[in-house]
Nucleic acid binder design. Structure first.
Lengths: 216, 216
DNA sequence: GATATTGGCTACTCGCGCGTAACCTTACGC
DNA sequence: GCGTAAGGTTACGCGCGAGTAGCCAATATC
């Protein structure tokens, strides 16, 4: 190999903040495809274009690295939703905006979603973390439903509320999963479909009812 | 230890079929708690009250053992649903019976459900298996919806149908997960709640509509 | 232009857990 | 009652991958 002519600094040295993001990107990618245990630190380092000790130096052990992924993807998600679904809006509007934000993020970061949803749920040290995030979401949705109910002077048992919220969140997650596996699908359209199913219900849909997004 | 008095055959030798089921029970239990990779064959063998080589002799490698678990729990599930939701019934009745069967099985085999839903989804060699099962379910639900639609002389795009079915299945799975984590909850009641959410939709529910199970 | 400091690497240790070899011992068939 | 298959065991080999020790090279700072 004569090519060793010190011509250009082919191997660039990058500041820590940049490398950390690259590593997190690589980690999310590998974790999403392989799962926590089957993913190897070597592969992650390799994918990030860096050597393994650097990963340990910056992000710590495998477990800490995974938590860092969870944290980044999780807060991204929660903030997008919280920012979109302002509390002063009417219930259907809030739901619609929340869904749109949610599917937007999933569409833009598909393997981030896969890590959160498919990988972290079962693995023991992390299941709790995810469950907490999910519980917060369910709580928000339940709160929204409750608010709308009270506005109509009605009231419903706490468990009933929680369960409906659970179903709503579950349906949404499931569609997100579908979206993650269908790269050609449009997040916005998926959100509309979800809104239809959630708001109207199968019975209504069968009788020809349709919900349409407000012309915002 | 004086207790070694050949009094009773404390160590019972059991026929293969029995031991296989015990092993599968143990495997499902351990896999559900730990996940595929973190579960050790030693722990499974231990939990089954048998030594490791027996597991290998009867059920094969770890991967084969996991597939066997998936297969047992999966067919149990699918058969219960198929047996309950007869095609000649009207759509809501079919949905209701299917849901009741589903939640019944989940309630009776909670960690079986956890293996199917929480563990097998992400792990690469098995995700396909699960996806196939799930796709069959979605197809059935979509078929049911389609049937009901045609009966009313209406028609809907294939993707729309598939997506609604996906949402329905996802919501149901999510509630199943809730059920798995709430040992005190009643499967039948959970099924009713799911039916309400699915059939009526959030919008209807907010306006006080209620769906009630037929007095069967 | 000397000297920290920060970015980066190669090459190792070591434990955990899958899978197996080799070996006992009940019980059933005849 | 005795051979033989079927039920069962202990104790090990061995590979893979997490984590580390020790060392080199740019860049920043004065």
């Amino acid at each position: 190999m004569l090519a060793r002519v010190s011509s250009a600094p082919t191997f660039r040295r990058l500041p820590r903040a940049v490398r950390e993001q690259q590593m997190l990107d690589a980690a999310v990618k590998v974790f999403s495809r392989r799962g926590y245990h089957a993913a190897s630190m070597d592969e992650i380092a390799d994918d990030a274009g860096i050597s393994k000790p650097m990963v340990y130096a910056y992000l710590g052990t495998k477990e800490e690295l995974f938590v860092a992924c969870l944290h980044r993807e999780g807060t991204r998600m929660m903030q997008a939703i919280a920012g979109a679904a302002a509390p002063e809006l009417p219930a259907d509007e809030r739901l619609w905006r929340g869904l749109r934000a949610f599917f937007g993020v999933v569409g833009a970061h598909r393997d981030g979603w896969a890590v959160l949803y498919r990988q972290a749920r079962g693995e023991q040290p992390f299941a709790g973390e995810i469950a907490t995030m999910r519980a917060r979401l369910v709580e928000v949705v339940a709160g929204m439903l409750d608010h709308a109910l009270r506005a109509e002077g009605r009231e419903v048992g706490e468990t009933d509320l929680e369960v409906v919220a659970y179903a709503l969140v579950g349906a949404t997650e499931s569609l997100a999963d579908w979206l993650a596996d269908h790269p050609e699908a449009d997040p916005e359209k998926t959100a509309t479909r979800m809104m239809n199913a959630a708001w109207l219900g199968a019975g209504q849909l069968l009788h020809g009812a349709t919900w349409r997004p407000p012309s915002a």
